[in-house]
Design a protein around this nucleic acid. Structure first.
Length: 585
DNA sequence: TTAGGGTTAG
């Protein structure tokens, strides 16, 4: 119990140090008032600081304390702005910052700028970020390395990458954190090539690196499929002793899985002494997108035995694996398990996997029923169903899916092409021309398809009929040669057949040829540039069309090459004339 | 007294 006699301020401050909950703080506050110390600056500031910053604090009580201060000091402004910047109401931080600027007797310091910028980033207020930037310059903080790093992140968080980069370039002094921050900003915003280029500049300047550097770069390698650069990151991590850093190891597992090297991913996974949910998820999702549903399930069981709680991503990996391996019963079981045993509510993505699972297995009625009971009116579900209708040539359900896509107002070029394919299969020429007309009349634009391949540490991109590469003549000559070799083994090109249109694509816009598809050009280039018997790894932003899928099978046999293709949906491992997807994709 | 950087999906 607190005794009520005239205490020394130092006694109150000591009591405050031991305070660990808001109830006790309120009692101390009452005691401060009774003792007539409510205007003692240090005590008021400490009380406020506890409420605003401590996890056991209360922002409403912090506001109450703040508004009873006669002339809040910079320290008090600091606490209230910091508190709101890290709260679920970051807008309030900006309101207090504005109030501080208006009340000219207190001036913001470098700490306050850091908190305000954090708030700008959270609420996505680019305009405010620019205003604060102006204020930073006017008040002479543009040379503060931490303020500038915060400013970069704030701009990048608002998707103003050029402004972020300008801040970075204009910094008079940069340290490892500022370099890492710019790299991770690029990586998180999807500017992967810029992240890798910046790393090269960083090395030229002998800044050094740490685990943070490796994580940002490895994540970028994963996204663009830059395996060779990723392997370099792994070597550095081993050499410099960063393999015990769980962030680094997790990023490497994900990178290897996304670059098609499941064995390398597993090797790191097995060596890790400490694994968290991301470690398990990266491996399970890796198995899922490679079509190894059984291995994903087996790992999931081990994960539970290890006492690691799965999350919604774990189940995405499991369902994806079940769907691609045709494990219908298991998929249904895990779909129910996520809510019954793990209290995870299935999201649109999980329903998408289930529609795909039923659809691929030919259970189109069940897929339809699931969409109707899902309470999601998401285009992606109807689109998934439509693609299953194409596999199983079911025009009736295809039309239901298409009508619903029109109803939700989101049909794209790929959808019309899929529907046209379905009509073509049913010899419904009127249906085909109706789809063509809608596309032409509504000017529906197709997505540009492109494929890319990493040779040494460079990424080479190709689009259909690409002639931009300096070695273009050699590439086309090689393409002719490989088409001939494939033909000798029995390959017949599906020229202009409407059912060669890829699912979400486009590449084969109505009237173009399948013979110069981007993945064929990438393969021709790869065969020229890589040693015999080495594995070719191709990435594509859309799905591989039937013709290219067949073609690559023949090429894997004719040239005795393993060819790994990562498309928009999954991995295809082509070897000796066969594909790991079993032509089931 | 207090401030800056990291991984899965989307």
């Amino acid at each position: 119990m607190l005794k009520c006699h005239s205490p020394k301020p130092s006694t109150i401050l000591t009591i405050l140090q031991g305070c660990n909950n808001i109830k006790r703080l309120k009692k101390i506050h009452a005691y401060v008032i009774i003792s007539g110390l409510q205007h003692h600056v240090t005590i008021s500031n400490r009380l406020l600081n506890f409420c605003a910053v401590s996890v056991a604090g209360s922002m409403s009580y912090a506001q109450h304390l703040f508004h009873h201060m006669d002339n809040p000091s910079t320290e008090a402004w600091n606490s209230i702005i910091r508190g709101f910047a890290q709260s679920s109401s970051p807008c309030q931080a900006l309101l207090y910052y504005n109030a501080m600027i208006s009340a000219s007797f207190s001036q913001p310091n470098s700490y306050i700028f850091s908190f305000v910028l954090k708030a700008c980033e959270k609420i996505k207020d680019e305009k405010k970020c620019g205003e604060v930037h102006g204020s930073i310059i006017r008040r002479g903080y543009e040379r503060d390395i931490i303020v500038c790093t915060n400013l970069m992140r704030s701009y990048a968080g608002n998707e103003f990458m050029e402004s972020a980069r300008r801040v970075f370039d204009d910094m008079s002094d940069r340290d490892l954190v500022s370099w890492n921050c710019m790299i991770s900003c690029y990586s998180q915003a999807g500017f992967h090539q810029d992240a890798l280029t910046l790393y090269n500049q960083m090395q030229d300047k002998n800044v050094g690196l740490d685990g943070f550097t490796l994580v940002g770069l490895t994540a970028s390698c994963a996204h663009i499929g830059a395996l060779n650069v990723g392997i370099e990151m792994h070597k550095i991590a081993r050499k410099k002793g960063f393999m015990n850093d769980i962030y680094v190891a997790n990023a490497l597992i994900d990178m290897y899985a996304k670059c098609g090297s499941l064995d390398s991913a597993l090797s790191i996974f097995n060596k890790m002494k400490k694994k968290d949910v991301l470690t398990w998820n990266s491996m399970i999702v890796g198995y899922g997108v490679h079509g190894h549903g059984d291995k994903a399930i087996s790992l999931f069981k081990k994960m539970l035995m290890a006492g690691v709680q799965p999350n919604s991503i774990t189940f995405l990996g499991l369902l994806c694996g079940c769907s691609h391996q045709g494990l219908v019963e298991e998929g249904i079981q895990y779909f129910h398990l996520m809510s019954s045993d793990f209290k995870l509510k299935p999201e649109v993505k999980h329903y998408g996997c289930m529609v795909d699972l039923f659809g691929r297995a030919g259970k189109l009625d069940e897929a339809l029923k699931l969409i109707k009971t899902s309470f999601f009116d998401a285009p992606v579900l109807w689109r998934t169903l439509l693609s299953s209708c194409k596999i199983h040539r079911n025009v009736m359900i295809g039309e239901i899916a298409m009508n619903n896509l029109v109803h939700v107002g989101m049909p794209n070029a790929g959808d019309y092409l899929l529907m046209a394919t379905l009509y073509a299969g049913a010899k419904d020429t009127e249906g085909v021309s109706r789809m063509r007309k809608i596309m032409q009349n509504q000017g529906i634009k197709t997505t540009v398809a492109w494929s890319w391949i990493e040779v040494e540490d460079q990424i080479y991109k190709f689009v259909v009929n690409d002639s931009s590469h300096p070695d273009s003549c050699k590439i086309y000559a090689k393409l002719e040669e490989i088409i001939h070799q494939a033909a000798l083994l029995g390959y017949v090109q599906e020229e202009e057949a409407i059912d060669t249109y890829p699912l979400f694509s486009t590449e084969v816009s109505l009237g173009s040829s399948t013979s110069k598809h981007s993945e064929k050009l990438a393969i021709a280039f790869g065969l020229i540039k890589t040693p015999p018997e080495s594995c070719l790894r191709i990435m594509k932003n859309l799905r591989v069309c039937n013709d290219c899928h067949t073609f690559i099978k023949y090429i894997s046999k004719a040239y005795d090459r393993e060819i790994i293709v990562r498309d928009r949906v999954r991995f295809h491992h082509f070897k000796n004339g066969l594909c790991s997807c079993g032509d089931y994709w």
